[in-house]
Design a protein around this nucleic acid. Sequence first.
DNA 1: ATAGGTGCAAAGTCTTTGCGCTTAA
DNA 2: TTAAGCGCAAAGACTTTGCACCTAT
Lengths: 126, 126
Amino acid sequence: MSKHRELILEIIKSSGHMTADEIYMKAKQIRPSIAIGTVYRNLGLMTEAREIRRIFVPNAPDRFDSFTNPHEHLFCQNCRTLSDISINNLKDYLEKQTGVKIIGYDLNLKYICSECRKKEETKEQI
Amino acid sequence: MSKHRELILEIIKSSGHMTADEIYMKAKQIRPSIAIGTVYRNLGLMTEAREIRRIFVPNAPDRFDSFTNPHEHLFCQNCRTLSDISINNLKDYLEKQTGVKIIGYDLNLKYICSECRKKEETKEQI
DNA sequence: ATAGGTGCAAAGTCTTTGCGCTTAA
DNA sequence: TTAAGCGCAAAGACTTTGCACCTAT
């Protein structure tokens, strides 16, 4: 594991759900010579090696997460922030409901987070 | 609704799950002067107007479906074909499990379709 | 004539990759 | 000294968009 790869992994662990570009920006602060291509290259390799997880977000750049237990993602339609949430045995549930052997799935739940909801309420009162 | 827009809708209705490029190719056979930009433009407008539905597929171009009832999608990891499947009250289930008010969701189920599975079996026997 | 739609091509966004150089074992 | 990794820049895939033109009202 190279220096850069280690740094990238640290950054992902320190704050999840970052896009490649966000990771690049943060890495650049610590090691200014790093190139965006290196970030993408290492993200790809680490994803393949299952050290991290790539999260597909419709209509938005991929995000990367340190690979812990499977969990789902809530995506705020307003501020575009991604949050974790876990749903027990969702894969089993989906297999049971569909009758199909499922290899995996990508799920994005769209909602309005509590901060944005509050702002909306305030706006309405004005 | 313009001529081109009508044609595009017809094509989508006639065989679902097509990418913009596939729709373009098919439209070009009927009206050769049509431009890819026009296809994308109309797909965007029709999606906004909820006349059709845009399906996000991780790591692959978007696909378009005539908007019927909500349903889920199975994506074969081998031949990259997309199939419909419906899961009753999935949104309710997800809301109940998460305790979060959900606006919508994107779900992609990854599997190996029966044709590809058969081929795999045959290969193994050889 | 005129507003909406179109073809064309350029540009935008995100991501990958070829190549020659660097670097650590 | 040599394989692995890197910086750089170009290119690739998909999609959007500005603009001048065209076409039905």
